[in-house]
């Protein structure tokens, strides 16, 4: 299907300045030695603690990563004589590190900060402890360096399930999304869905900064869902869990009739269930999309309707029962 052919991108690097701008509010980062080196490139999502490098062992020193200096490093430095301390730092600053983050509110001497600035290595300070900031930063960098793809479709949260509506342009994705919003579901993005892979198996979809929750309805033009339907009608991002591909009804096409075998579609290497939905006049796709979500939830909670039915049928076949009434005798039901 179309979703698979789209073009995957991945950031190769971010600058130290970008890291600071994006995270200083959340992570409480403070600039300690100016903006020199803000254009240093970070190419790796891993972090490094330069303890051994400070002690003089620099083989295998992954200097090109974001360096985290916590209590261990600072106490080690403080335990040294001033001349040794300067030598250890000068040694470390020989390496072109993108930036250094001092955790736990630790501080280092002004002359060391200036020495780093002279080598174009920005130093940031934070009150957070090392494990916490490492966790936050690893998540931020993982997000920045994760593969992304732009999918042409609408992403709607239906009963808490992220449903991606796909199909050729003009088939009515936006209209169905609008109908779903009207029924109380929440729009994530229309027409341009930015999908990012988190970790190994999670897809997160979001709109773009510019478009947010605008959508185009043929014949009307652009509408703003947020201002029209309010905050309850939107959300910024949602895990993409199912794809529904809309297509014109083709009589010779083989659509699933039992739902025992489910199709899959691969987005960024993650397989999610795919429902191919033929549309024709008079078909209420909105309700079907809701049912698709509810069915997904049922399966998620351990109930697979087609399998249950198959089991029941096998039971009946096994018993060789006669008669075709749902209930053979229902006492005193005269209504």
């Amino acid at each position: 299907m179309k979703i698979e052919r789209t073009h995957e991108t991945r950031k190769k690097s971010i600058t130290a300045g970008f890291l600071y701008q994006q995270t200083h509010d959340r992570f409480g980062l403070k600039q300690l030695n100016g903006e020199a080196g803000f254009d240093n490139l970070i190419r790796d999502k891993s972090l490094n603690r330069p303890g051994l490098a400070l002690a003089g062992y620099v083989e295998l020193f992954t200097y090109d990563r974001v360096q985290i200096m916590g209590n261990t490093e600072i106490r080690y430095l403080n335990s040294l004589k001033p001349s040794q301390r300067m030598a250890a730092c000068t040694n470390l600053l020989e390496f072109k590190m993108p930036c250094i983050i001092l955790t736990n509110g630790n501080i280092i001497a002004e002359e060391l900060l200036q020495a780093a600035a002279a080598r174009h290595i920005p130093i940031f300070g934070t009150e957070f402890e090392t494990t916490k900031i490492s966790y936050f930063l690893a998540d931020f960098l993982d997000d920045q360096f994760s593969p992304q793809v732009v999918v042409h479709g609408s992403l709607v949260d239906i009963y808490g399930v992220g449903v991606l509506l796909a199909g050729r342009s003009g088939i009515g994705k936006s209209e169905i999304a609008l109908d779903l919003i009207e029924r109380g579901h929440r729009l994530v993005a229309d027409d341009v869905v930015n999908v990012t892979r988190k970790g190994e198996g999670i897809l997160i979809g979001a709109g773009t900064d510019l478009v947010k929750h605008f959508m185009e309805i043929r014949g009307l033009g652009l509408i703003d869902v947020r201002s029209m339907f309010g905050i309850r009608a939107i959300r910024f991002q949602k895990r993409v869990e199912i794809a529904i591909e809309l297509e014109e009804w083709q009589g010779d096409r083989d659509y699933t009739r039992t739902g025992l075998d489910t199709d899959q579609v691969s987005i960024l290497g993650v397989d999610i269930p795919l429902v191919k939905l033929p549309i024709f006049p008079g078909k209420n796709v909105t309700v079907i999309a809701e049912v698709v979500s509810l069915n997904y939830l049922l399966k998620h909670y351990g109930y697979d309707a087609p399998k249950e039915f198959a089991k029941r049928l096998e039971g009946v076949i096994g018993q060789k029962k006669k008669g075709n009434r749902a209930i053979n005798y229902f006492e005193h039901d005269f209504e």
Binding site: H7, T9, V150, H152, D191, V192, M215
Partner: peptide
């Protein structure tokens, strides 16, 4: 249509405008 690696469907006005 693609610009700087960002690829969109050229029949979607929202998509085209996203390219800015």
């Amino acid at each position: 249509l693609a610009k700087d690696g960002f690829e969109i469907n050229g029949k979607s006005i929202i998509g085209v405008m996203t390219l800015a």
